[in-house]
């Protein structure tokens, strides 16, 4: 299905996948294969379903129909959850109670430890490596609240890296980050990608990560609108350009075919 040259084994496979929340389908009938080592941007305007697609891969949104396989297992069926890393869209890491960079990143490592095991020497080393990978090694024991917004975003990346994932899913990692920190982040992601980790990055701006991401998947109204080289994706992604109908037409289109379809109760379990 992929238009990108075949890389390694399939890491993500969607077959006519319909993903949503409760009975509400947001991504519909989507076919997509992402292979090991690829660096893929998931693009689309607000409400297009790009975040839902990513959340579907993590088991945070429900598969309503079709099939989703991540690292060869059904979503949620993966035995070692540490193999999939997740960087949520969150502008700050600091919660109500103070926590250090080391503590926050340590949480990411729990994915490798099951329910009761505590962080051992190897785990602590992985945490330190993850923090070093995002260039915050000298802030290891500082409270995350004392870090800048861009640095806190890097803490979230380190938290995902601490489990040494094979697939890293990120939601808007560069949004609201200043240019200097975007550059640092691009460098970090470039190194992660070069080490063989598969990247899936949900984003609305490709410029900051243009050197890192090679393939783009554009989601529009919950359906796949484009899949191919990132360089050629831009014109498919801009609202009102090319494949998008003009605004007036589009509103009519929405009335006929609403983005969000309420499925009849029980439909969610069909095909299982």
């Amino acid at each position: 299905m992929s238009t990108t040259p075949a890389g390694g084994a399939p890491v993500v496979e969607l077959r006519r996948a319909t993903i949503g929340y409760g009975d509400v389908a947001i991504v519909r009938d989507l076919d997509l294969t992402i292979r090991a080592g690829e660096a893929v941007a998931v693009l689309g305007s607000n409400g297009s379903g790009k975040t839902t697609l990513a959340r579907g891969l993590l088991g945070l949104a429900s598969l309503l129909d079709g099939e989703v396989q991540v690292l060869g297992a059904r979503v949620g069926g993966l035995r070692d959850r540490g193999r999939v890393g997740y960087v949520p869209q969150r502008h700050s890491v600091s919660g109500a109670v103070p926590a250090t960079v080391r503590e926050v990143v340590g949480v990411g490592r729990l994915a490798r430890l099951g329910l009761l095991r505590r962080l051992g020497r190897k785990d602590r080393a992985a945490v330190a490596d993850a923090v070093a990978a995002v260039g915050l090694e000298d802030r290891m024991d500082d409270p995350v609240a004392s870090l800048s917004g861009g640095q806190q975003r890097r803490v979230l990346v380190a938290r995902a890296l601490a489990a040494e994932p094979e697939l890293l899913i990120m939601d808007e990692p560069t949004a609201g980050v200043d240019a200097a920190n975007q550059q640092v982040l691009a460098g970090v992601l470039g190194r992660i990608s070069a080490s063989g980790t598969t990247l899936v990055v949900v984003t609305h701006e490709t410029a900051p990560l243009a050197d890192v991401l090679s393939r783009a998947v554009v989601v529009d109204h919950g359906r796949l609108a484009y899949d191919g080289p990132l360089a050629e994706a831009a014109r498919h992604d801009e609202p009102g350009v090319h494949h998008h109908p003009p605004a007036r037409e589009r509103s009519g289109y929405r009335l006929d075919q609403p983005t969000v379809t309420t499925r009849p109760r029980g439909a969610a379990h069909e095909g299982h």
């Binding site: 993590l58 993966l78 540490g82 997740y86 949520p88 990411g108 729990l110 994915a111």
Partner: peptide, 21 residues
């Protein structure tokens, strides 16, 4: 025994779910 997991869940429930806690 469970302090670190309880911290993870209290801090960011969605992330905890994503990593399989």
């Amino acid at each position: 025994l469970l302090g670190q997991r309880l911290y993870a869940v209290s801090d960011d429930e969605e992330y905890a779910r994503a990593v399989g806690l």
